[in-house]
Design a protein around this nucleic acid. Sequence first.
DNA 1: ACAAATCATAAGAATGATTCTCATTATTAA
DNA 2: TTAATAATGAGAATCATTCTTATGATTTGT
Lengths: 132, 132
Amino acid sequence: MNYSYQKEIIYETLKTLKNHPTAEYVYHYLKYKNYKISLATVYRNLNKMAALGKIKKIGGINGSARYDYNINKHYHFECQSCGKIFDISSEFTLGLTEQIQNATGFKIYSHDMIFYGLCAECRDNNYKTITL
Amino acid sequence: MNYSYQKEIIYETLKTLKNHPTAEYVYHYLKYKNYKISLATVYRNLNKMAALGKIKKIGGINGSARYDYNINKHYHFECQSCGKIFDISSEFTLGLTEQIQNATGFKIYSHDMIFYGLCAECRDNNYKTITL
DNA sequence: ACAAATCATAAGAATGATTCTCATTATTAA
DNA sequence: TTAATAATGAGAATCATTCTTATGATTTGT
């Protein structure tokens, strides 16, 4: 994978934004910042970087794919009210892969987990809405 | 949700097929079996049944959504070689939701997990390919 | 069983997300 | 610096899914 300015600014955008953006979001962010770039290039590079393990592509979220600068093992939580994506530590599943490999005979290379519910803020707002 | 013949045969198809099919697959299976049905109806009913909890919609798998007749809590494994989807018991994550709710303050309603790797058969075949 | 109201379907159009194509431009290596 | 290779931009194409609307099926009350 050769150097390119576009690759650079896409990667920097992902580093800056903490909101697990979609390709479309990265594209609009860069256009807004007056960088010259095309949507296809954003998709191309995000997927290429994900394939190389430089970033992480997150599936399973309603709508478009999300991309994550953080490639350390961790999970995600999607708030069903505000739509925000939060990181969840993977400390709660230590040894899980080994257990399942032993139980199934499968060779497991990776896994993803996503939680759905209400973030702390939305949970409180919803209680207010219901009780008032 | 009213009765309809189409709903019936879609649900029966999901019960019969053990392979976590896509909507498209269910549609072609039914056409092949000479049932009169349209693709939009397959999508409409699979999604409606999933919304009502009668079946389970599985996201996060490369490409299209998959649908599962089994609505008991369980996870999935996708073989990166043959593409088959296998069920994984959820017995290895007892208490996980509570732990994460306590640690984060989020209200968690559900979660999905998908493992990627090689199924037993493909793992063996790959060894053969490599060593021969 | 009948009529009226409601709901579901078929078929194709429309949409949204993503990938492809290919002519042009940038990057790399000798 | 030049040839070879790789990346980009822009729009077309594709894929999965949803929407639209006219028609047909199902339900409900009598």
